[in-house]
């Protein structure tokens, strides 16, 4: 009998089982929300009584869920853009300059991911009202809260990319005639773009699903989706909430797919020349 050549397994079998189990446990709730949102019954139950699009329709007609969804989308996009800009600048400062207190600054800007969101929300709220700077329960005040917790993700990603960055690429661009800004735009940004995309997606997702920070900061006339879900589920137990959940999941999946597409596209365009 011919012997099968010995081959080291790339991943030990036990790891595969553990990973599979973890994935299963993570995906089950998503599956449950999905089916609950397509329920044809009157209540948020699982397993669903039957399948229908009635709650999806209700989501689109609802005067609380759809606006909340769109509002969360706007807040998340705003927080993402601000975090990307601020986070990149802070990363540059942290990685590329040497000054006393750099480690302290780093600890301070990264701390919001370690602190409970509710604490951040509450402290900001107290800060807003005690100094009466007109930010309490405003959209700007809410965005500030979100940026506090989303910015560290961008900083983490972008500083890691900058630490490993080969400065001679920038120097090469400079001596070929590029100004500081042109070099930043044409060399630095494209080369750290995977970190920017990853950081941006993180920021977006964290802001979109943010409940803790939003709780005290939400403006009276507009409610982000997680708060809206919480408030309405306290009084009614409608499958519209699950339908909204489907759209939230959908958004995350879309942003992941776009990310993958952009990174691929970059690879394709780099190989193209005129």
């Amino acid at each position: 009998m011919a012997n099968k050549p010995y081959q080291e397994a790339l991943v030990p079998g036990a790891f595969k089982w553990i990973a599979g189990l973890a994935l299963f446990i993570l995906l089950v709730p998503i599956f449950v929300v999905f089916l609950a949102g397509l329920n044809s019954g009157d209540f948020l139950t699982f397993p669903p009584e039957g399948l229908s699009l009635r709650w999806i329709k209700a989501f689109f007609e609802s005067d609380s869920y759809l606006p909340a969804y769109l509002y969360s989308l706007i807040i998340a996009l705003t927080a993402m853009v601000i975090s990307l800009i601020l986070g990149t600048l802070i990363s540059l400062l942290l990685v590329r300059s040497a000054f006393a207190g750099r480690a302290l600054l780093r600890a301070v800007v990264m701390s919001p991911i370690m602190l409970p969101g509710i604490v951040i929300g509450l402290s900001l709220y107290l800060f807003y009202i005690s100094f009466d700077i007109g930010l309490a329960r405003t959209q700007a005040g809410l965005v500030i809260g979100h940026v506090l917790v989303t910015c560290p993700y961008v900083i983490g990603m972008v500083s890691a990319a900058l630490v490993g960055f080969d400065r001679s690429l920038e120097e090469a661009a400079r001596s070929l005639g590029a100004s500081r800004w042109e070099t930043f735009r044409k060399i630095t940004i494209p080369l750290i773009s995977p970190a920017l995309i990853a950081g941006g997606v993180f920021a977006f997702i964290v802001s979109f699903g943010q409940f803790d920070v939003s709780l005290f900061l939400t403006p009276p006339n507009n409610t982000p989706l997680p708060i809206a879900l919480y408030t309405s589920l306290r009084y009614t137990f409608e499958p519209t909430a699950a339908a909204a959940g489907i759209f939230a999941i959908f958004l995350v999946v879309v942003s992941m797919v776009i990310t993958a597409k952009i990174t691929n596209l970059r690879r394709i365009t780099a190989a193209n020349y005129n």
């Binding site: 080369l191 780099a270 020349y273």
Partner: peptide
């Protein structure tokens, strides 16, 4: 014109 020890070819451009 400066030529670097590691050549510093821009990796995102052909």
């Amino acid at each position: 014109g400066f030529v670097f020890q590691n050549y510093a070819i821009f990796p995102h451009m052909n």
